[in-house]
Simulated assay, not measured.
Amino acid sequence: MTLPRTLLRIVSALGLAALLAGCNLLVLSPPGDIAAQQGNLIIVSTVLMLIVIVPVIFLTFWFAWRYRASNRKAKYTPDWDHSTQLELVIWGVPLLIIIALGAVTWISTHLLDPYRPLDRIDANRPVPAEMEPLEIQVVALDWKWLFIYPEYGVASLNEAAAPIDRPIKFSITSSSVMNAFYVPALAGMIYGMPGMQTTLHAVMNKPGDYEGFSANYSGAGFSHMRFRFHGLEEGDFDNWVAQAREEGTSLGRTEYLELEKPSQREAARHFASVDSSLFDAIVNRCVDIDRLCMDQIMALDAAGGLGLRGLDALALPSQGDARSGPYITAGVCTVETVAPLLSSVVGGLQAP
């Protein structure tokens, strides 16, 4: 004996509802304060729009039922074409909603600016005046994530950690193509671009193991370009740093040039020590010491360049070298003479 079709539909709907009840809507209820404020924006915007959508849907069905062909009791007014009251509702309510959405957008754009340092840990606690943010330097590689902790002198690959209730300042860049750094539990996505540095301020308020990934397609290994973000108690974070110092290897320029080669599904690992100038060299595209840094090139250009001989510095890389120029050649100057030359250029630019 088969169940009636209506009963089958009810049972199917209840089963679907039971499955959805187990879903964790992380974007709408995240443990990080910045992500929580952004989730509230989604809810506020949705509710404001539903003020129009719900009545319109209801009235659509009501009019279809009220004025159906078989309803002979419905009032028939073929000459009706205007109602001042209805016009006020039709134009006034959407206008008020647009004003409200505009106000919310303007305020949140400033309060949730990713470059703006945090002034609160959560809704009930401001950031103490003596608390300094934890700086994490993020590099998007092909196809993996490198995290450098300059305060502690350690780094990690495809794994990040931070103490809860301490503001975090992410400095983000990329080694080759544009990527988007995104930890849904922490804050919104921020782009990382080669030769540029972007900033994100955030805070994690609950311990846990959260997922992070790239939200911008960047090639063959994009699907597996993921990492784990650990929100830890202060003591557990200190243990994480100590473990990195004990188990990790060193990360200098040579090791980084090997690390930045494209690879997929890299296991998480730590680096016990990091070259303090590495992140700045990555941003300025000069980890290879045979290349001029972008800021050095801009300083030379601002001083008028090197004349015709300066064209030698734009020589193409040697055959088989995948890295692109510009390179500085011995025809212009040697590596040993770059620093004094730039010092004199910068000094001339700063002179009144």
Rank of each mutant, 00 (worst) to 15 (best):
L14N: 01
L14V: 14
L19E: 05
L20V: 05
G32L: 05
D33K: 12
Q38R: 05
G39P: 03
L41Y: 04
V44L: 11
S45D: 06
T46R: 07
M49C: 08
I51M: 09
V56I: 07
V56D: 10
I57N: 02
F61V: 15
F63R: 06
R68H: 11
K75N: 13
S83L: 09
S83D: 14
T84C: 13
E87Q: 12
E87D: 09
P94Q: 04
I99E: 01
T109A: 15
L111K: 04
R116E: 08
R120G: 02
R120S: 10
A123M: 00
A123T: 00
P126F: 08
P128T: 08
P128C: 08
A129H: 14
M131S: 11
V138D: 01
L141D: 05
L141F: 02
E151T: 04
V154Q: 02
A161L: 06
A161C: 09
R166A: 01
P167S: 14
F170Q: 10
T173H: 06
S174T: 03
S175G: 14
P184K: 00
A187P: 11
G192K: 06
M196S: 10
Q197K: 15
T199V: 15
T199Q: 11
G208E: 14
D209P: 03
E211P: 04
E211L: 03
Y217M: 12
G221K: 05
H224D: 12
H230I: 01
L232M: 15
E233W: 00
D236R: 10
W240T: 01
A244M: 13
R245W: 08
R245Q: 15
E246Y: 10
G248F: 02
E255D: 12
E258S: 07
L259K: 07
P262I: 03
R269D: 01
H270M: 05
S273H: 07
S276F: 04
S277G: 04
L278F: 09
L278V: 08
F279P: 07
D280S: 09
A281S: 09
D290P: 03
L300M: 06
G305W: 02
G305L: 00
A315R: 14
Q319I: 14
Q319F: 08
Q319V: 15
G320Y: 09
G325L: 13
I328Y: 14
V332I: 15
V335M: 05
V335G: 05
T337C: 01
V338H: 00
P340E: 06
V345S: 01
L349E: 00
A351L: 10
